[in-house]
Structure formats: C-alpha cells, structure tokens
Simulated assay, not measured.
Amino acid sequence: MEKHLMAIPNRCTGCNRCVYACSAVKEGMFMPSKARIHVNNLSHEGYSVPSVCFQCPKASCMEACPTGAIFRSTRGVVVVDAKKCDGCGNCVAACPYGMIDQYASGKAYKCDLCGGAPACVAECHYGALVFKEPDKTSLNCRKDQMKQRSKLGEPEEKRRALAVEVLKGAERVPRSAGYMR
C-alpha cells in the first residue's frame, strides 16, 4: 500500500523546521518562500496548521497542464517535469489547496515527497507531519482535509482558507507544559 503525507494540526507548534528542511533539500538554501510545505500560523486561535500536497488521486494541476509537464510517477506521486513546463500557470490556478507554485521563470514546482523520504517529516519532532501507510483514522483525517477545497485566487489564500477550515474540525488540545508527551 502507498504511503501518504499527512498533517496533524493539533500537534503543530509553528516552529517551521519542516519549511526550512524542505527549502534546504529542494533549493539548496534556507528559502522558506520556495518550500513545498507551508505552515499557516493562526495566531489569534493559538494554533498553526501545516499545508501539505495531498498527491490527489484526481489531480487538478495535472489535468490543467497543457504540455504534460505534470504527471504521476511510477510511485503514484504527482511530479513536475521542469523541462516540459512552459510556465503558463494553469496548474497553480487549478490546485484547490494552493500547493503548487511557480519560480520567477514561470516554471512550476510542488512537493514530490522527496523520493519517498520527506525531509519535512524527518525534521518534525512533534509528530505534526507523518508519512505512513494509511489506516482508518488517518484516511478519515485526510478525507476531511481534502474536502476543504478553495477557489480563492493566490496559493497563499487557498492555503490559509484550508488551514482555517481544517482547524475548525481539529481536536484542540490544551496548551500546557508537557502537552506533547
């Protein structure tokens, strides 16, 4: 069975270690704006919610790509072939979760699960990000998160809207010393 990258929002501390790890692995430098994972800090609520690419079974970004630059790999991961990407941006507009973006050159980029060992998961010491074979609980969590599709414009707006909706359904735990133990 294939593994899924999943976010557990009530465990996220907002430390952004996952974001830095992702950008370091993918860009060769700490450049959070180019990370493939994003953390939405909802300061008024006292929570942070990670946004991850769901590797959608019916990927809107892939369907919107006129050049075939976005395809599903043999591992089932939706990936971008930068050589084929013409920079049209159709994929960015099509993703209802805001998880695909473009470089200044116009070339698209998105999470590719780091070849099966996501750096973000390795760096998350609080268990807010997991990469595992799904069980009934995690499938329900993923399904609930995927229902929160957004038609807002920019990827950042879509991610924030998703985070707000995911937080509404998340179990909120008391924030006290040692709450992660």
Rank of each mutant, 00 (worst) to 15 (best):
E2G: 13
E2F: 10
H4R: 15
H4M: 09
L5F: 03
A7C: 09
R11T: 11
R11D: 09
T13K: 13
T13I: 01
G14V: 12
R17L: 14
V19Y: 05
A21M: 10
C22Q: 01
G28F: 02
M31E: 10
P32M: 03
R36F: 13
N40E: 13
L42D: 01
Y47M: 11
Y47N: 09
P50L: 05
S51D: 08
V52P: 01
C53G: 05
C53R: 06
C56N: 03
C56F: 07
C56R: 06
A59H: 02
S60R: 13
M62S: 04
A64E: 10
C65Y: 08
C65R: 01
C65E: 01
P66W: 05
I70S: 01
S73E: 02
T74D: 12
R75I: 10
V80T: 06
V80S: 01
D86T: 14
D86A: 14
G87Y: 01
A93T: 04
A94L: 06
P96W: 09
P96D: 07
M99D: 02
D101R: 15
A108N: 02
A108R: 06
Y109Q: 03
Y109V: 02
K110E: 00
D112G: 00
L113I: 02
C114E: 04
G115L: 11
G115P: 01
G116V: 02
E123T: 14
C124N: 09
Y126N: 14
G127H: 06
A128G: 01
F131I: 04
D135A: 07
D135R: 08
S138P: 05
L139T: 15
L139M: 15
L139S: 15
D144L: 15
K147M: 10
Q148Y: 10
S150R: 07
K151I: 10
L152S: 12
P155N: 07
P155M: 06
E156L: 08
K158H: 10
R159V: 12
A161W: 03
L162Q: 14
V164G: 00
V164S: 08
E165R: 14
K168W: 03
A170N: 02
A170P: 00
R172H: 11
M180W: 15
